[in-house]
Amino acid sequence: MRGFQARGAAAVAELDDEERMVVARIVADVGLLLGGEQFGMADPGAQHARDADDEMDGIFAHLKGLEESLAEPDDPAVLRLLPSASRDDRDVADEFRRLTEGDLRDLKVARLRTMWEQLSEDGPEWEIDAAEAMPTAAALTDVRLVLASRLSLDTDEDADRLHGEIELATHALDTDADDDLGIDPERVWLGMLYQALTWLQESLVQYAMTAEDADE
């Protein structure tokens, strides 16, 4: 994986086939969670994508739990994507939800669909026009919010702890240590996906900020 870098009037990142499929899959899952239709179902290439998916079952096994929990209507991840607009005034929160929730869902699903379509193209490059940099960064935020909810990252300390757990787990893997670290492998896998998306988003935001500075 290579982070976003400027090329002409676009930002270009590189993801290998496996990385693209994993990211595309979680993007599609978040779209479903928001009530969007399954991405790519009307696409004649979808069968090919599903066949390829079957080969990836081992990798996607870790996403199963995520998909199951997403189906619940009172899923905390949905609440994180469509949060309450008031902490203590029910009327304000309800009124806001009534006025805005449909539009917010549509906006988020449309952005995720665009990202999914880009990731479903052939080749390692992921190219984003300068004008699409922030909408894409926002879509990456939504995916990261869902992963963070699944990983119970509620505070900055939780995020630091996850980072430590992943370091410990990857170090154990590198050194072939078979000590039982007491770390759930699914948590490590989702945590590494979360970190990779964080890193990709950071490179995209740096690109957007630099591009804007150059305009001024």
């Binding site: 994180r80 994507l81 469509l82 949060p83 309450s84 607009a85 008031s86 902490r87 005034d89 304000v92 806001f96 006025l99 805005t100 539009d103 917010l104 906006l107 988020k108 926002a138 935020t141 939504d142 990261r144 919010l145």
Partner: peptide, 18 residues
């Protein structure tokens, strides 16, 4: 303020109005 909060939620930031 509802417009601003909606925009922040669009960006994935948690905002409230009061």
């Amino acid at each position: 303020m509802e417009v601003d909060v909606q925009a922040m939620h669009g960006y994935g930031l948690w905002a409230t109005l009061q």
